Computed example of a mutant assay.
Amino acid sequence: MSKVIVITGTSTGFGKLTALTLAADGHAVIATMRNTDGKNKLVADKLSNIDNIEVVDMDVASEPSVTDAFEYILKKYGNVDVLINNAAVTGFGIAEAYSIESYKNMFDINFYGPIRAYQAVLPSMRSAKQGLVINLSTGASGFSVPYMVPYMASKFALETFIEGIDSELRDFGIENVSIPCGVYPTGMGEKGGFNADREEITLAYPDFGQRIGDLGKAFYSKVEEFKMDPQTIANGIKSLIDMEKGTRPLRYPLDAIAQGTDVEFITAKRKIKRKWASKYGIDI
């Protein structure tokens, strides 16, 4: 059955592939992105010419932009069945060498961005007593990565938000899913994000250049070895949407590089978390 689906950050990468995949499956896709009259005009125009896709300008870092976009969407379509929080930025550098402003900028998109979208769509989903929110995440709930600390921290915060709000929304029939997706060649790191901006601090770490280079080589070699195809994520999102209500998992890892260790961690964490929470009399 065709659904009304809103996707954030559709100018490139997972967002664009997911929009194309779901539109081809017959869903009504609202592909949102910022700067549709500027740097993203070309891709916005191309997506707009594809059946079942409407492009709407929305900047997840701007509350007025998110509010206006969802007001338009809900007025035109009447409801939103699925929200896909995909828009995100990355960044590299020494954790100490990030200014507080750069930390805030990272969180504004990766953490507050999804929350803005949640808050804009939840009233209508609660009223309908149904809805699905899919969030593109990372392995941050399992471990952090040096030289990507602000990015990992923003995603870990998002994981915590998803886990808590899922319990709060259960009585309204609204499901939440996080996809820890690992490393894929989406060009995300090349689009520009928020890198460490306190150069004088970076210079105090003389081996930083070598270490960040080694990290990049390690990531790239794994991407090549496991033939990481971004279409895997789009197909995974389609699978989640096709699942029967009530059967969707809270976390849906799609990371071949992890070789099952992500599933092992998530399963163990879920069991221990519930046991721990039960000691406080909390049902999660």
Results as ranks from 00 to 15, higher is better:
33 M>R: 04
161 F>S: 10
11 S>K: 01
16 K>I: 06
12 T>H: 14
59 D>E: 05
95 A>E: 06
282 I>C: 08
88 A>N: 04
246 G>S: 14
130 Q>Y: 10
155 K>H: 07
274 R>G: 02
245 K>D: 14
91 G>C: 14
212 I>Q: 02
131 G>V: 03
258 A>E: 10
220 Y>Q: 15
125 M>C: 12
99 S>Y: 02
240 L>T: 00
136 L>Y: 10
124 S>E: 06
34 R>I: 10
140 A>F: 10
174 I>T: 01
260 G>N: 11
169 L>S: 06
262 D>T: 09
47 L>P: 00
195 N>C: 09
216 G>H: 06
57 D>M: 05
256 A>K: 10
71 E>K: 13
94 I>V: 12
66 V>M: 04
46 K>W: 06
40 N>Q: 07
212 I>P: 00
176 N>Q: 12
21 T>S: 14
73 I>T: 03
165 I>K: 07
10 T>D: 02
164 G>P: 08
275 K>C: 10
82 V>F: 10
203 L>D: 02
48 S>H: 11
196 A>F: 00
109 I>W: 07
231 Q>R: 02
151 Y>K: 02
44 A>K: 01
52 N>T: 06
115 I>S: 01
157 A>N: 09
230 P>Y: 15
34 R>Y: 09
149 V>P: 02
235 N>L: 11
62 S>Y: 01
236 G>I: 02
279 K>H: 13
197 D>L: 03
226 F>L: 10
157 A>M: 12
192 G>V: 11
178 S>T: 06
137 S>L: 03
22 L>I: 10
126 R>T: 06
4 V>M: 13
203 L>S: 02
173 G>E: 03
114 P>K: 10
225 E>C: 13
229 D>C: 09
192 G>L: 13
243 M>Q: 08
73 I>V: 12
141 S>D: 14
13 G>T: 09
246 G>I: 15
142 G>C: 09
27 H>K: 11
212 I>V: 11
231 Q>I: 05
272 I>K: 08
228 M>D: 11
270 R>Q: 13
274 R>F: 09
146 P>E: 05
40 N>P: 00
234 A>Y: 04
136 L>R: 02
29 V>D: 05
48 S>A: 12
122 L>C: 04
219 F>V: 13
272 I>A: 08
8 T>V: 07
94 I>N: 03
67 T>I: 15
88 A>H: 00
100 I>A: 15
193 G>K: 03
82 V>M: 03
28 A>N: 05
263 V>G: 06
22 L>R: 01
224 E>S: 15
184 Y>I: 03
204 A>W: 01
170 R>T: 11
190 E>L: 15
228 M>E: 05
249 P>C: 15
